[in-house]
């Protein structure tokens, strides 16, 4: 990233290192409503837990990129990116603080800058998002152009309570 960060009108994007774990991040993962949408258990993480997660992500060549508000430096959300070098595809997962921001509005602004950077810096040619059916805010975002809905993978995940299987909607965007 140029100067280690990317900027949009309202936000700054930068790779998160182990020393960048925010209180907001810890709060999101303990938020039962948000985690239920993401089909995950709410957990009270300690800073050291997230630091270990970031180190593991770096080892597995996953990029964790933070979204920060420019004027306040407040942590707004995260992208987690995984590149498939064989097919030059980039798989995206996102989380945006839904209580203080409109996720779709944030991501509409940040997607374009981030994906243009990933195409230029890493040569990726397609972005892919796989969204579990319960994650309504992500479905709303990826359901808009320039993202294209490519299909519904039936019963792809086990629900977090183990009671049923959930569909995953797959979206794509050529870069």
């Amino acid at each position: 990233m140029p100067d280690g960060q990317l900027q949009t009108r309202r936000f700054v994007l930068r790779i998160i290192g182990p020393d960048d774990v925010s209180d907001e991040w810890l709060r999101w993962f303990s938020d039962s409503d948000l985690m239920r949408q993401r089909n995950a258990h709410a957990v009270k993480l300690k800073r050291a837990d997230v630091q270990r997660y970031i180190i593991a992500a770096q080892r597995q060549r996953r990029l964790v990129i933070g979204i920060y508000e420019r004027h306040s430096s407040r942590h707004v959300g995260l992208y987690e990116l995984q590149i498939n070098p064989e097919h030059k595809n980039l798989t995206i997962d996102v989380i945006v603080d839904p209580w203080r921001f409109d996720p779709h509005s944030v991501l509409m602004e940040t997607d374009a800058v981030l994906l243009a950077h990933m195409a230029k810096a890493y040569g990726v040619q397609k972005a892919v998002a796989k969204v579990v059916e319960t994650y309504s805010s992500a479905l709303r975002h990826f359901g808009h152009a320039p993202w294209i809905k490519e299909g519904v993978l039936r019963f792809e995940r086990t629900s977090v309570d183990g009671s049923r299987r959930l569909d995953v909607v797959q979206f794509g965007m050529l870069l």
Binding site: E86, H87, K88, N89, Q125, K126, V128, I148, E150, G151, V152, L153, R154, Q170, G172, L174
Partner: peptide, 19 residues
């Protein structure tokens, strides 16, 4: 079997480089 998705230009073919 059921068709669940058509992934647009999803593969980068080694033989030709086309997607």
């Amino acid at each position: 079997w059921r068709l669940e998705a058509r992934l647009n230009k999803h593969l980068c073919l080694k033989s030709s480089g086309v997607r």
